[in-house]
């Protein structure tokens, strides 16, 4: 059945009026080969961004989530800031944050602040994804049974100790699959920084396309992303299944 649908689909597409032209501009093997080195170099930038951003995002997400789940009245201003941060950055499109930081910060001409687009857009991704991850971690923290906290308190653990040794380890285990899902999505969203001219894979592909009027490199860039995100997704599934198996003992 699937094969049949596929065959019909291929037939419909290849017999369309625009197919010869499409084939020429999007599926040209020589252009793919020519653009490949630039895109590969660009993609290394995507991977670098991902690798640097991911651990920072995780740390920020956890810190913000912990801040939001504190109860001490002393920390009310900090809690407010954490709520504002997550609400604001989850509400604003990531692309907008990228553009704002890349254009806005250099315009301020603050001494000591970097004007490197690589780092500015990296910060934008970190800020945006930090808010998402914070919410995921918070949902994990809130899913921990109150008896667990009561048990920790009854053992005379302090609140930070309870968070560190009882709540957080369980919460992170529980939200590992959605967290990894967010990271797959982050790897993809590193392409957003092409909007302000950081020469990553998508930018290199567009660049080539604009000069040579051939857009095959876009598909090449797509293949690069898929080559990373699909294994990441399978890895996520595997981790989720393993967690389930462990829970069932």
């Amino acid at each position: 059945m699937t094969v049949f649908v596929l065959v019909v689909l291929v037939w419909v597409v290849t017999s369309s009026a625009g197919w010869p032209r499409f084939h020429e501009t999007f599926l040209s093997w020589p252009d793919a080969k020519k653009a490949f080195p630039d895109i590969a170099r660009g993609f290394w930038t995507n991977v670098k961004m991902f690798l640097i951003a991911e651990p920072i995002i995780l740390v920020i997400g956890i810190l913000v989530a912990i801040t939001r789940s504190t109860v001490s009245p002393w920390l009310t201003p900090l809690r407010g800031a954490a709520v504002l941060y997550t609400d604001l950055l989850r509400g604003v499109p990531t692309l907008l944050v990228v553009v704002l930081l890349a254009l806005g910060v250099p315009a301020l001409r603050l001494t000591g602040l970097t004007t490197s687009l690589f780092w500015l857009t990296l910060v934008a991704l970190v800020l945006s994804y930090g808010a998402y991850v914070a919410e995921v971690v918070r949902s994990g923290i809130e899913s921990i049974h109150p008896s667990q906290i009561a048990s920790a308190q009854a053992l005379a653990l302090s609140r930070p100790q309870t968070m560190r040794h009882v709540v957080l380890p369980q919460a992170l285990r529980r939200v590992a699959p959605p967290l990894l899902n967010d990271f797959v999505s982050l790897q993809k969203d590193t392409a957003l920084v092409s909007a302000v001219g950081v020469s990553e894979a998508l930018f290199a592909a567009q660049d080539y396309g604009n000069f040579n009027f051939n857009y095959t490199p876009l598909l090449v860039a797509g293949a690069f992303f898929v080559a990373i995100t699909i294994p990441l997704a399978r890895f996520t599934d595997w981790l989720g299944r393993r967690a389930l198996r462990r829970q069932r003992g």
Binding site: S151, A152, A154, A156, S158, H165, V166, P169, R173
Partner: peptide, 20 residues
């Protein structure tokens, strides 16, 4: 209160142990 809880042991109806 922690100084007091150090001297007292308490067990609840369920979900006492830390599963991780």
């Amino acid at each position: 209160p922690r100084a007091v809880r150090r001297e007292i042991g308490m067990v609840f109806q369920a979900y006492n142990l830390f599963p991780h």
